[in-house]
């Protein structure tokens, strides 16, 4: 009987480990882009782009001021805007489910162990 209990406990531990493995193998939650929050004040502040490399001072000075009264776009940007930071595929939610699954396995295994021990104690 003791062997049965021990093997049940071993199986439960295996279940917990099996569910915990993918969670630990997962990459840490993604670091959001450090896109500079555009500020409302000052011309210079708006020129600090998302890249931390502050090497383009010349471009900053060469940039014309925004059109005050002139109509139309005074500076045409280069290329297409990158307005989509790809969704983190199942990162946070996935971890939550893994943790939930592991916790459920622990609870179920504990319940099974208690059940076995009590049955054994009662001599059934």
């Amino acid at each position: 009987m003791l062997r049965n209990v021990l093997s049940a406990a071993a199986l439960a531990c295996t279940a917990v480990l099996a569910t915990a493995m993918p969670a630990s193998a997962d990459d840490p939650s993604p670091v959001p882009d450090t896109t500079a929050a555009p500020t409302d004040s000052g011309e210079q502040a708006a020129e600090t782009g998302p890249s931390p490399v502050p090497s383009d001072r010349g471009a900053t000075e060469a940039t014309p001021a925004p059109a005050e009264e002139g109509d139309g776009v005074s500076v045409v940007p280069r290329g297409a805007p990158d307005t989509g930071d790809a969704p983190a595929a199942g990162q946070s939610g996935g971890d939550g489910l893994l943790i939930g699954g592991g916790a459920a396995a622990v609870l179920a295994a504990g319940g099974a162990a208690v059940f076995v021990v009590r049955r054994r104690a009662s001599g059934a």
Binding site: A8, A15, A18, G101, A108, V116
Partner: peptide, 26 residues
């Protein structure tokens, strides 16, 4: 002891559902 094995199997199932859900939910 059979019941114990069944209980552990249930534990596996529950854990498996959690893991599978995470893979699909992302």
């Amino acid at each position: 002891s059979r019941r114990a094995v069944v209980a552990v199997a249930v534990a596996f199932l529950v854990a498996g559902c959690g893991g599978g859900g995470s893979g699909g939910g992302g």
